[in-house]
Simulated assay, not measured.
Amino acid sequence: MTNVLILGGTGWLSGRVAGRWLEEGAAVTCVARGARPAPDGAELVIADRAEPDAYAAVADREWDEIVDISSRAEHVAAAVEALGARTKHWTYVSTISVYADATMAGADESCPLAEPAEPGDEYDYSREKVAAEASARSAVGDRAAIVRAGLIVGPGDPTDRFGYWVSRFALAGKEPVLVPEAAGLMVQVIDVDDLAAYIVAVGRGRWSGTANATGDPIPFTEFVQLARRTAAHTGELVAADPDWLAAHEVNHWMGPRSLPLWLPADMPGHSTRTNAVYRSTGGALRPVSETLARTLDDERARGLDRERQSGLTRAEELALIADLTG
């Protein structure tokens, strides 16, 4: 039987990875703080990765595969030191945010990375991931797969970015929806279940290397239209100039009072990374329209008018539309 250790295994992505390995017939152990349950059939080892003895309960076992998704470089460094010699293969889930340059369209895995985080630095997500990648490579070497995930989307997304659009169109119905003027901007995402399947596949095959695990770039305007059709929205699209939106304190990308997935014009390469390695190593991509439909079902179940982590409230949006058109 394949013995798999998931450092995590109770969160959105890591829980799906654990579940996929269980479906493969593996014996799965999850190391997590215990705030959430592990998937049925997995062993849960409760530990805090900030503690020096975090891996004591699993460090004397032999593993076929270890999966880590942490964005804390010190946690990854401690894990590979404690466990790197005990596994046949290690998969570290990184991010396409590790790259230093977001201006080059179609860039591949060889592009320069951001400076790695150093102990004591103020937390920076991309720099932490760069340092974590380096730890995995140095300790596990040719037994490591570095999976640089793109924007992960789909049912259960805790960030509320991708789901904002299909949810908002469904909520608005026949009423107007505010969109940014976004000519030339792109969207690039990967369904959480496609990514989980790939993480399991590279572990099963013990592939070593680095891959941008992300979907094909699509124009932002095309994505908005796909979301609109999925939600059967029939109201008006009210397009706002980026400078007008900035003046009215509407943010890019994510978070409160934002238009999610909308990027500044000076980041044309961010959502255009090549996924050729991902595809050539067996990575699958379902149509974005399918992910939107799955996401809409999830959004309806959670409540279209619920409080969100990202996006405009409907009241904020209607006030902006009134200001723009009045």
Rank of each mutant, 00 (worst) to 15 (best):
A105C: 05
E62M: 00
A26D: 12
L318G: 02
G8P: 07
D48W: 03
A315D: 15
G156R: 02
I190A: 05
P256K: 07
L5W: 13
S271P: 00
V189W: 14
G303N: 03
G311M: 12
G184L: 05
I46C: 14
G163R: 03
C111A: 11
L151F: 09
L259T: 01
A211D: 13
G41D: 10
A284G: 03
E24G: 12
R306M: 05
G41Y: 10
R86L: 03
L245N: 03
V58S: 01
A247G: 10
V80S: 12
D157Y: 00
E316S: 08
S135C: 06
T234Y: 02
A26R: 04
A131N: 00
D157Q: 02
A136L: 04
V202I: 11
H270T: 02
A246M: 07
L171M: 09
T91G: 07
L178H: 15
G163S: 15
L259S: 02
D241V: 00
I146C: 04
A276N: 09
Y125G: 06
L312S: 02
P112H: 14
S258G: 06
G120C: 02
V238Q: 00
S14I: 08
P176A: 06
Q188V: 04
K88S: 15
R279P: 06
A107V: 14
A35R: 12
Y92F: 14
D216E: 09
A59Q: 13
A183E: 14
V250H: 12
G154N: 14
A105R: 11
P180D: 13
G141H: 04
A59S: 13
L178F: 15
E24F: 11
M1Q: 08
W90M: 10
M267S: 02
V238M: 01
G184W: 09
A105N: 00
Y164S: 02
C111T: 00
N275A: 10
F223I: 08
L13C: 12
A196E: 13
L195M: 09
T325K: 12
A172E: 08
T325R: 11
L44H: 05
G283T: 07
A114P: 00
T29Q: 06
W244S: 04
R127K: 07
K129L: 03
R86E: 13
Q309S: 07
A149H: 04
A144G: 08
E128P: 00
Y164D: 03
G209L: 05
A145C: 06
L5I: 08
G255H: 08
L318P: 01
A100Y: 06
D298W: 15
Y123P: 00
A196C: 07
T10I: 15
E175G: 12
A47M: 15
V177L: 15
L13H: 05
L83M: 08
S135M: 03
C111G: 02
I321N: 12
G184I: 04
L304G: 01
W244R: 08
A293I: 00
A107M: 07
I66D: 14
S310Y: 06
T274P: 06
E74S: 02
T10R: 03
V166N: 09
R300Q: 13
G184M: 05
T2H: 09
S289R: 08
A197T: 15
T214N: 15
